[in-house]
């Protein structure tokens, strides 16, 4: 049953439509959990395999991609150590954040950040440029826009606290 009205403007043109809020909430939750597990699984797998010494040389030394000038800076020294630490730990924390619906927008922002590098550098374009990496990027942005942590997530409770009510900017990283 369509019980949720979207009433807005897009480039000055009225956009009004009804959608089923229950299914919207349901699918938002499903997306959040599956994307969350995707990253939690990827992060934990790396942590169990190599701890915080993930071998990212294959990735950061790539040349000829649009993000190579940025990635190559992180190819050695302390900056490479940071990458070795941040990829497994970051993926794990992003996955946890999504599954728990905690700091959802912050977690999804970093998920999108990682996916920008994966989608432009991995070049897994065997079947064209629309691949899992690009969909991952789009999904993280979708979760930010949907405020997916509010569906049975901790953010739904955190946002109701007096602290967040008094600091409404926190909704940019919750939601």
């Amino acid at each position: 049953m369509a019980n949720t009205e979207v009433d807005t403007t897009l480039f000055g043109t009225d956009v009004s439509y009804s959608i089923d809020g229950r299914w919207l909430a349901y699918w938002t939750l499903l997306l959040r959990l599956i994307v969350g597990w995707w990253f939690l699984h990827a992060g934990m797998g790396k942590l169990f395999e190599a701890g915080v010494q993930y071998n990212a040389q294959w990735f950061v030394t790539q040349e000829g991609t649009v993000v190579s000038p940025i990635m190559n800076v992180f190819a050695d020294g302390m900056l490479y150590g940071l990458v070795q630490f941040m990829i497994p730990v970051g993926q794990t924390l992003i996955g946890l954040g999504l599954i728990l619906g905690c700091l959802l927008r912050l977690a999804s922002f970093f998920g999108a950040f990682l996916m920008v590098f994966f989608t432009t550098a991995n070049q897994g374009w065997a079947n064209g440029m629309v691949n899992g990496d690009l969909f991952g990027l789009l999904l993280f942005i979708a979760l930010i826009i949907l405020g997916a942590g509010r569906v049975w997530g901790l953010d739904a409770y955190i946002e109701r606290t007096a602290f967040v009510q008094n600091n409404p900017w926190l909704r940019y990283i919750l939601g």
Binding site: D7, T8, T9
Partner: peptide, 18 residues
């Protein structure tokens, strides 16, 4: 239940279009 968003700014439009 309604979700009304009518404060679309020029910056919104530039970001969305570009």
């Amino acid at each position: 239940m309604a979700t009304t968003t009518n404060d679309e700014t020029v910056m919104d439009q530039i970001a969305m279009a570009l």
